[in-house]
């Protein structure tokens, strides 16, 4: 996608906001970064051609502004009653990150976006709230975060089953992955970083593939899949990678998190996470199904798209065969 100059500007301020909030030493600075981030995301998503995008932008603005105002309010409580302040902070950050039970805005905003904006919302926009959340693990928030983990796992798993829009499916999958990420935060920063980097890699490669084929609905996939059968299988094994099936890259972060959770005896949470992983896998598989049935019926007007860029296949390969190259993830660690 060729970027216009204003998009470049807003994208750099978006990154600046994120960097500002994760590197600031005071809550006020963190708030400022979040605001900058929010206000530069709005122009990135609104476009004249699409009426849904302005709705999404409005929803996003309202929710994020609410989150930010709670943050600035609780920053002022920090001096007087820190317990109340940290609780409010946690809730506001969960709202900003789109974790259940504050997730309701997330699928509906996602639905109005283009795929490349979806990538930003799924990856970059999570960095700031999640890393701020990792500063907040006090004794009183240690009840909120596990509750959010469990609800996110369940909501992400059950919510996605009923969806046929790919962006909503990606949204619910993101909510489910939030549960894993928050459990990683509870354990250590490194784990969170690892899980998050892998999640970014996998989910953005899936979104790039969908963007490439211009699909927004499950039924579009039947008509739009590229003609080469190899490509078809590669494409949709990356969905299984998102689900975290063993031979694929998506298994690596899950494996690490499971290992850490077992060694810190979080068996109940782990059981819920694993059960929800099965359910998410079910809806990924439903998306992938049309491609895995290699000679499926096609309509006459199905387009033949061939992947010409080198980036997409390389991302898919990275996505699928990561487990064969273990040095890939030791770099991140």
């Amino acid at each position: 996608m060729p970027l216009s100059s204003s998009q470049i500007l807003f994208f750099s301020t978006l990154m600046l906001g994120t960097l500002l909030s994760i590197s600031s030493s005071s809550w006020f600075g963190a708030w400022m970064g979040l605001e900058l981030n929010l206000l530069s995301f709005i122009p990135l998503i609104s476009s004249k051609n699409n009426q849904y995008s302005s709705e999404a932008a409005l929803k996003y603005f309202l929710i994020q502004a609410l989150g930010s105002s709670i943050i600035i309010m609780s920053a002022s409580f920090m001096m007087s009653s820190s317990e109340l302040a940290t609780t409010l902070f946690t809730v506001a950050l969960l709202l900003k990150a789109g974790a259940a039970p504050f997730h309701f805005w997330f699928p509906s905003v996602m639905e109005g976006l283009q795929w490349n904006q979806v990538i930003i919302l799924m990856t970059i926009q999570k960095i700031a709230p999640l890393s701020l959340l990792s500063y907040l693990l006090y004794s009183n928030t240690l009840y909120i975060v596990p509750a959010a983990i469990i609800t996110s796992a369940l909501v992400g798993a059950i919510g996605g089953i009923n969806q046929t829009f790919l962006r909503k499916i990606m949204a619910y999958s993101s909510i489910n992955h939030m549960a894993w990420m928050m459990s990683a935060i509870l354990i250590s920063e490194t784990n969170w970083l690892l899980y998050f980097s892998f999640y970014c890699l996998i989910s953005s490669s899936v979104a790039i593939l969908f963007n490439y084929q211009d699909v927004f609905h499950i039924s579009h996939i039947v008509n739009h899949t590229p003609h080469s059968s190899h490509m078809k299988i590669l494409t949709f094994t990356s969905l299984l990678s998102l689900g975290g099936l063993p031979p694929f890259t998506g298994f690596i972060p899950k494996w690490i998190i499971i290992q850490e959770m077992v060694s810190s005896h979080m068996f109940i949470t782990l059981a819920i996470l694993l059960a929800s992983a099965l359910l998410t896998l079910f809806y990924y598989l439903r998306v992938a199904m049309t491609a895995l049935t290699i000679s499926s019926p096609k309509t006459k007007w199905s387009t033949k798209s061939t992947i010409s860029s080198y980036m997409t296949p390389s991302m898919i390969y990275m996505n699928i065969f990561g487990l064969l190259a273990p040095s890939l993830f030791t770099i991140i660690l």
Partner: peptide, 30 residues
């Protein structure tokens, strides 16, 4: 199974196989 099977029911069969096996084997990992 999904790629070279003969009938539409193969989708159900594939999902059955995957989920029966995965349901039991994720706890094995733990």
């Amino acid at each position: 199974i999904l790629g070279w099977g003969y009938q539409p029911e193969r989708l159900q069969a594939g999902v059955y196989m995957l989920f029966y096996t995965l349901f039991a084997s994720l706890p094995l990992l733990v």
